[in-house]
Amino acid sequence: MQYKLLATMASGLEALTAREVQALGYEERTDNGKVYFEGDETAIAKANVWLRTADRVKIIVGQFTATTFDELFEGVKALPWDHYLPLDAEFPVAGRSVRSKLHSEPDVQAITKKAIVDKLATVYHRHGRLAETGKTYPLEVSILRDVATLTIDTTGPSLFKRGYRIAKGEAPLKENFAAALVMLTNWHPDMPFVDPTTGSGTIPIEAAMIGLNLAPGMQRHFAFEDFAFMDPEILQQVKDEAMDQADFDRELDIQGFDLNPQMIEIAKENAKQAGLSQAIRFKQVAVKDNQLTAPRGVIVSNPPYGKRLGELDAARQLYKEMGEVYRPLTGWSKYILTADLEFEKAYGAKATKRRKLYNGTIRTDYFQYWAKRAPRQ
């Protein structure tokens, strides 16, 4: 069966996710925070296993205009819920409404739930409430500018939960956002890669997974594994194919530094959980003591932002040290994420390019300092 599918992601990462969907072999259409594509059950499994930058993969059951609760009820009831939900399905309904006449989200949820119950009761010839004692099918009704979209979440816990991070620091990056930071650079697996403020090691771990072509969803479970219409062999086949595509023999030069020895131990533990202990070297080193001897490479850093009272001066001192150490490394590209929009002043150089991104709800800029091109041989 062919499904209309939807991948969601953080604002600003749409182009990356679209490129990933294309790489899986599917045509896509991009909107704000969304990438639409079509595919069968294998596409659902592949998207969940392979997408590094997405949050979720959803099946679109239907879309229609709804400006009254009667229109919402009838529109939901007309959809083919029996194609997806067995009689005993548990189907919690989440609801969102933005810039729409039906702005009461609790009412939108309740009416959607009632309409689905009515549809299933009619199809399965049942009266009254449904038992909902079976597997869970997470549903969402989202109304944007009076257009209702009904979806089934195939992912479960967000795709950023890869399964390898058993310990984390004070302000950890989500795994899919860390992967995006790596994918927005000019890094190739044959180049040195350094994260000088590594924290729990998420950026180097994601870089290693990219470098070895490891699918990010290999270690986790998904909501669709419980769906009656999904053959369980499909996911196993997708994971087996992903394992065959991994390049475990590739030599990587990836390092993560941090001033805090406790964070270095946490990073090592997470890398071990990811099966990447041999691919990454973690070391306790202060930024001002970084000694990078290779002529070319890539630095990616998510340093402290100095958002808390009294911490901005310390953060800007760190940015100043970064500038003093990294500016002379003209063969290295530097990519630094921070919410301090005055970063360039402390660093001591204007960025080649700035890209606006959202780290959760925090507005940040990705300051990019591109390396000088190597002379032609």
Results as ranks from 00 to 15, higher is better:
235 L>K: 06
271 A>Q: 07
219 Q>I: 06
250 R>A: 09
154 T>Q: 05
186 N>M: 01
207 A>T: 04
225 E>Q: 13
194 V>T: 14
171 A>P: 05
197 T>A: 14
213 N>L: 08
325 V>M: 03
172 P>W: 01
264 I>Y: 05
233 E>R: 14
132 E>S: 01
271 A>S: 09
109 Q>R: 15
172 P>S: 01
42 T>M: 08
226 D>C: 06
296 R>Y: 08
344 E>Y: 09
89 A>H: 03
353 K>L: 14
349 A>H: 14
161 K>G: 06
84 Y>T: 04
163 G>I: 01
240 D>A: 15
16 L>M: 03
86 P>C: 05
57 V>C: 05
344 E>Q: 13
160 F>A: 12
78 A>Q: 00
113 K>W: 02
308 R>T: 04
135 K>L: 12
68 T>G: 03
221 H>E: 10
270 N>A: 11
181 L>F: 08
187 W>K: 02
180 A>F: 08
139 L>Y: 03
167 A>M: 09
28 E>H: 10
227 F>W: 09
158 S>L: 07
113 K>A: 04
160 F>E: 07
333 S>M: 08
320 K>W: 13
370 W>S: 09
125 H>W: 07
273 Q>M: 15
354 R>N: 03
118 D>Q: 15
362 I>L: 15
7 A>C: 06
260 N>C: 07
110 A>Q: 14
66 A>S: 09
137 Y>Q: 01
92 P>S: 03
99 R>G: 13
100 S>Y: 04
365 D>T: 11
58 K>F: 08
65 T>M: 05
96 R>P: 07
172 P>V: 03
283 K>E: 15
235 L>E: 05
341 L>W: 12
280 I>C: 08
213 N>A: 12
186 N>L: 04
366 Y>V: 11
274 A>M: 03
344 E>C: 08
165 R>T: 02
240 D>G: 10
111 I>W: 02
322 M>F: 10
57 V>P: 02
282 F>T: 00
244 D>Q: 15
78 A>W: 00
260 N>V: 12
254 I>R: 03
367 F>C: 02
347 Y>T: 11
74 E>T: 07
318 L>T: 03
213 N>G: 04
311 E>K: 11
225 E>M: 09
306 G>P: 09
238 V>Q: 06
209 M>A: 04
165 R>I: 02
28 E>Q: 11
211 G>F: 14
313 D>A: 14
103 H>N: 13
218 M>P: 07
304 P>T: 07
13 L>A: 11
289 D>Y: 04
320 K>D: 13
376 R>H: 04
119 K>Q: 14
115 A>Y: 05
60 I>H: 01
326 Y>G: 11
275 G>N: 04
308 R>W: 02
158 S>D: 07
340 D>Y: 12
265 E>V: 03
284 Q>K: 14
342 E>F: 09
311 E>M: 12
247 D>A: 06
10 A>T: 04
357 L>M: 01
32 N>A: 14
105 E>S: 13
124 Y>A: 06
50 W>Q: 09
82 D>K: 10
20 E>I: 07
75 G>Y: 01
227 F>A: 01
60 I>S: 05
104 S>H: 15
154 T>L: 05
110 A>W: 11
